[in-house]
């Protein structure tokens, strides 16, 4: 009935464009500015930091020690990890690891103070990391309930310049979470407060090389 109303409102059949793909003018920029790979990674780091994510840079060899240090600084009782997180990343971590299982309830997850994940893609221009629920990122809830999220981004492979380039790489069938800095609100007198319901501390580790 509603679709019939839509058709009548548009003046009956025949009003639709022949092909949406060719009729829409896509003359806008796919990205904003020319940058080398290094500059793109630098821009990502800069934009993440500007939105109050804490950015660290390291290489694959130093990653386990860095993760140990970052977690030790905040002393979580336990650290949540998704099922497919590379074992060697957490090799040096002292705190007990909790593996997320399908039966873990939200209340159980609420007891973990921190979570470590990988990511699907990171967007330099907007300072965004995107999670798509792959095995190294896990279910959406594990990056939501703990108060401290450490996200490891492989650079430069996982970094793109812009939102259009990120959408090209992502699969719409997967549940996606785009994260640009820790959660925030400006609902009280437009005064910005960081950390409402999501993790209040977001640390992003840019790891280069193998």
């Amino acid at each position: 009935m509603i679709l019939g109303r839509v058709r009548r409102a548009l003046g009956g059949p025949g009003g639709a464009p022949a092909s949406y793909a060719t009729d829409i003018d896509r003359g806008y920029r796919r990205r904003h500015g020319e940058r080398t790979v290094e500059q793109t990674v630098d821009l990502l780091a800069e934009n993440l930091a500007e939105y109050r994510a804490i950015v660290h840079r390291t290489d694959a060899g130093e990653l386990p020690l860095l993760l140990m240090r970052l977690l030790a600084e905040r002393w979580p009782d336990t650290v949540l990890v998704p099922p497919g997180l590379p074992h060697e990343w957490m090799a040096a971590v002292d705190a007990p690891l909790v593996h997320d299982r399908a039966v873990s309830t939200a209340a159980e997850l609420d007891r973990s103070g921190a979570v470590v994940t990988g990511c699907a893609v990171a967007v330099a221009e907007t300072g965004t990391i995107v999670l798509d629920g792959s095995p190294d990122q896990g279910r959406r809830r594990i990056t939501l309930i703990p108060d401290h999220h450490i996200c490891v981004v492989r650079v430069p492979d996982q970094v793109v310049s812009s939102v259009p380039q990120a959408l090209e790489r992502l699969d719409p069938a997967r549940p996606l979470t785009w994260i640009s800095g820790p959660s925030a609100t400006s609902d009280i007198e437009l005064d910005r407060v960081e950390g409402v319901h999501g993790p209040r501390v977001l640390q992003v580790v840019l790891v280069s090389g193998e």
């Binding site: 934009n47 939105y51 399908a102 967007v123 221009e125 907007t126 300072g127 965004t128 629920g133 279910r139 959406r140 809830r141 939102v163 719409p172 069938a173 997967r174 549940p175 996606l176 979470t177 785009w178 994260i179 640009s180 800095g181 820790p182 959660s183 925030a184 999501g198």
Partner: peptide, 16 residues
């Protein structure tokens, strides 16, 4: 430049 969180979902996903 970007809001803190954007969620997209398509139907339901097993266990998530």
């Amino acid at each position: 430049r970007m809001n803190p969180y954007t969620s997209t979902w398509t139907g339901t996903t097993d266990t998530d």
